[in-house]
Simulated scan of single mutants.
Amino acid sequence: MITMDDIVREGHPVLREKAKEVSLPPSKEDKETLEEMLQYLKNSQDEEIATKYNLRPGVGLAAPQIGLSKRMIAVHFVDFNEKEYSYGLFNPKIVSHSVEGTYLSTGEGCLSVDREVPGYVPRYARITVKATDLEGNELKIRLKGYAAIVFQHEIDHLNGVMFYDHINSEEPFSIPENASVADPE
């Protein structure tokens, strides 16, 4: 079981590496690791389990965050329209994106970052992601708004990018150009 102790914190070199592709079909070990990552997210959102094991709630987790430089992400969340997303993905890649941007009015957080980092994080409003799921199926997922933000945050981890790298350092709360807020007011 993955716990908060397994999650590497900012400053760890693996968080700045470009993660390696996972060879497909995935090894038994890679598949088990990805299943555990997804289970961590489910557990972290269950109040009883989260309290018992001192888990910080998360909606996404990338393999570099547990010290593995591999292109694997897990996401588990419900968006603002009550749509559920629950995926363990190998080699996710953004294959297209909108010109329009979006951002969260509250900014973003990260399981690997133990401090508040104020500011708007500009993201694409709509993206299409290609990946392979835990069952070995090739997926093409179209995402918008909050879901698109979560996937971009996790895929950034696979490229050694932290969410705060996107924040305007001069004016952290300047509204990103051509962007609208993703969360309901």
Rank of each mutant, 00 (worst) to 15 (best):
S69W: 03
L61N: 05
T132G: 00
E185N: 12
N137L: 03
E82G: 08
A131T: 03
S23L: 10
E21N: 11
K70G: 03
K140G: 03
F80L: 10
E177C: 01
G119V: 08
R123N: 09
K28V: 07
A147R: 07
C110F: 03
Q65W: 05
Y120P: 06
G101R: 07
V161Q: 12
E177Q: 06
C110Y: 02
E177W: 00
E21R: 14
K93D: 06
D133F: 06
A131S: 08
A62C: 06
D6C: 14
E29M: 04
R115A: 09
P25K: 04
V161K: 15
T51A: 15
Y120H: 14
N54H: 14
T3S: 15
M162E: 10
E185G: 12
F77N: 07
H97T: 05
E47R: 13
Y40H: 07
E10A: 07
E84C: 07
K93G: 00
K140I: 05
N54R: 14
E138A: 11
E154N: 15
D79Q: 04
K18D: 03
P184M: 09
K70T: 00
I94G: 12
V121H: 10
D156Y: 11
L24M: 12
I141D: 06
T51F: 12
R126H: 05
E10D: 12
K83R: 14
R9D: 00
A50W: 01
M37C: 11
T33E: 08
V181C: 15
L24A: 03
N81A: 12
K18C: 02
L111Y: 05
P184L: 13
L38H: 05
P92S: 10
E48V: 13
S69R: 00
E47D: 13
L134R: 08
I2H: 07
L55M: 08
M37N: 03
D165A: 13
P118Q: 11
E154F: 10
I141F: 02
E177L: 07
A148K: 09
H76R: 09
F151G: 07
M4G: 01
L41S: 07
R142N: 10
H76Q: 02
H76L: 00
G67N: 05
R71D: 04
K130Q: 14
Y146I: 15
A125I: 00
Q65I: 04
A179D: 00
V22I: 02
F151T: 08
E82S: 14
P184Q: 11
K83H: 12
E171Q: 13
L143P: 06
A62F: 06
T106L: 14
E170Y: 09
A148D: 08
V117L: 03
I94L: 07
H166S: 11
L61P: 06
V99S: 02
L139V: 08
D183A: 15
S44D: 05
K42I: 13
I167K: 07
E138G: 01
E29F: 04
K18V: 11
L134H: 01
P172E: 10
P13M: 01
Q152V: 14
P172M: 13
K31V: 02
H166W: 09
S23H: 06
I49H: 07
I175F: 03
Y120I: 03
N159A: 05
E108Q: 14
V8T: 02
K130F: 01
L38F: 04
P64T: 05
S98K: 08
I49K: 15
S44C: 02
D114T: 04
L134Y: 01
S105N: 12
I155E: 10
T128M: 09
Y87F: 15
